[in-house]
Amino acid sequence: MSQRGGFLKSTRRKERSGYWFVLPYVMFFLLFVAYPLVFSFVLIFHRWNIITPMEWIGLKNLSHLLSDPQFFRAMRNTFVFLFIHIPLEIVVALGFALLLNSKISFRGVFRALYFLPVVVSGVVVTILWQNLYSYDNGVLNTLFTRIGFPRIPWLIDSVFAMPSIAIMATWKNVGIYIVLFLVGLQNIPRDLYEAADLDGATGTKQFFHVTLPMLNPTIVLIVALSTIGGFSLFIEPYVLTGGGPMQSTMSGMLYIYNQAFYFGHMGYAATLGFVFAVIMLLVVVLQRKTIEAEAT
């Protein structure tokens, strides 16, 4: 009896402390998640530059967006970035992960070296690559002219600029994806390879029939993470190109930042943010569906 009473007391206590435990987060959620979401939604229908009163303009922001060539340009640029960045990253990361996933010396040293750019802030990477990419006296072009190659207009040609930024982003992030692939590789049960050996499947065949399908969840994760990263591309074009040449590196985030903080169009910037977010979620869902469909 007394035991039962104690139990009840303890459940009640548990319940009460449950509320106390989550209370700070609920407050945080209301202030920094719910309120901004609602506010952002309200902003879509307003014109506002922060300092003068808000003005209701109905769906004008949305209709302006549909006729705004810069919005479509930013959209296109994001897709160009993803189209180069994702495959490149998967190939490079998987390659290094396979190399590292065997008995070799200095494994930890290599892993740490590849990981270095991940930990370093994006600003550093961007400033560094600005100097690597410089047309006249950059490290890369100096190297190229040494070995008899022509100079490449990395950041000063509208065709090359976005791919250059995508290469840089790959260099920066590949470390984390190498580790993710390593985790994935080590989760593949040994006996699958043994069974494949019995069936007489060789290295390449094993890779395509055992390794790759088993890595599918990792690939889904990596594609989703880098898509989200691609949609948030900001500091790289902000420092390197200012969105040029010919708007070829104007990313969605940079365009939103310009609209909001240079031109003071908070309502329109919020609209852009919403639309970009919706498109991003659609893309992620779509990618996942495709990759999973291909795997089965």
Binding site: Q130, S134, Y135, D136, N137, G138, L155, I156
Partner: peptide, 8 residues
């Protein structure tokens, strides 16, 4: 005019 950024 050069079509480039000057570094340094």
């Amino acid at each position: 005019f050069p079509r480039t950024f000057f570094q340094g």
